[in-house]
Write a protein that binds this DNA or RNA. Structure first.
Lengths: 213, 213
DNA sequence: CCTACCGATCGGTAGG
DNA sequence: CCTACCGATCGGTAGG
């Protein structure tokens, strides 16, 4: 069991500690639990400040250790970011799929998906939130992996939109791109206070809702 | 004439060279012209990579000089960014105002404004393009000035949207926020090739178009 | 997990 | 406009 619950073991050498010295019932935190803490801390910081503006020292400090020590848990800043990004998208996909499963009509599905996406993007429960579209500050070598993963996630929305009875003049590809752009960058334009998240989602769906003639 | 055509002299100490030793008819570039070149170069780089990822040395290199020499023309990286941002928004405002002046109906005005915004955002003529919403990587001290300027610009759209015969269920504030978010970040989601800019603008207006019942 | 350090790079300055 | 440099900070490593 070299692969803990956290890690999906997809990327061959992702740099987690080799053995899980779990704390056999004692009050001690296991190595994988410590690693999870670090992932959450890093996710929060990356989401707040972006990739470049978040330093290894920032992350280490919040985790209560020195920068060098962090490298016991991770292999590199880049690998850390990719892992967080992948996990965040997996979690988001699961949440959106769960919530649309209970819907009957296509428009209901769209609205439920929008509400859930806003919750994911705007709630600071770290690991799930940062869809992080701010790829500009991410090194090129990493970008491809991130984009592939994101495209995979967006297939959920492609399917929802495919089922909508839209007027034929509307291009479903650009429809999806625009909608996802708004949802994925919600943390950048959302202003706390005036409208609730479901109200915002309803406004978005209200704007994007067009029935075929 | 310590204020050249480029500079609006709004921000008190913006750091341009004190006197314009213009090249009295000769083939020599004047100091203000050199400064304009630097502004264009910096604008392009900031737009491509964001504030933080663009180094003073990058800018200097493209301008054919050393990092230190740049400080003959500018006072600081932050002041440079603010100046570019202000100029870009002024130019964008002028272009959008000019284009909607020739429109008769509210929906025509909205579509014309959208087309123009996409042109501005997607054409790499540097100085005009970077509305740069990527404020995350910008230092806090600068952010307030940028936001104030941006709010000023967005008044144009507030007025256009105020004139639209929208259904009462649609909140015009969030309507404006969503629309501007799409237009301002077009360079991040636009994929060259499939649809032209006017076609994209038409799709956006098609989605955002709702007549009151 | 720590100390101590590496080479690289950053924005900016001095002095010409 | 240049050279030469500053202190700060970066991601990462060695050796314990």
């Amino acid at each position: 069991m070299s692969e803990g619950a956290v890690h999906r073991g997809r990327a061959a050498s992702s740099g987690q500690p080799k053995s899980d010295t779990r704390a056999a019932g004692s009050g001690e935190a296991s190595v994988v639990e410590r690693r999870d803490e670090i992932l959450e801390i890093a996710a929060t910081l990356f989401a707040e400040r972006g990739y470049r503006a978040t330093s290894i020292r920032d992350i280490a400090e919040r985790a209560g250790m020195k920068a060098g020590s962090l490298y016991y848990h991770i292999t590199s800043k880049e690998a850390l970011f990719v892992e967080i990004h992948d996990k965040a998208l997996d979690a988001a996909a699961a949440r959106v799929r769960a919530v649309i499963a209970g819907c009957r009509s296509p428009w209901e599905r769209l609205e439920a998906a929008c509400v859930e996406m806003l919750e994911i993007q705007l709630n600071p429960e770290s690991l799930t939130l940062p869809i992080m579209n701010n790829f500009r500050s991410v090194p090129d070598e990493v970008k491809d992996a991130l984009i592939r993963k994101r495209d995979e996630f967006e297939r959920i929305f492609r399917d929802i939109i495919a089922a909508l009875p839209l007027p034929s003049a509307i291009d479903r590809t650009i429809y999806r791109i625009l909608l996802l752009r708004l949802l994925n960058t919600a943390d950048e334009w959302y202003r706390e206070g005036r409208l609730t998240r479901p109200e915002i989602a309803a406004q978005i769906v209200g704007i994007f809702r067009h029935e075929a003639g």
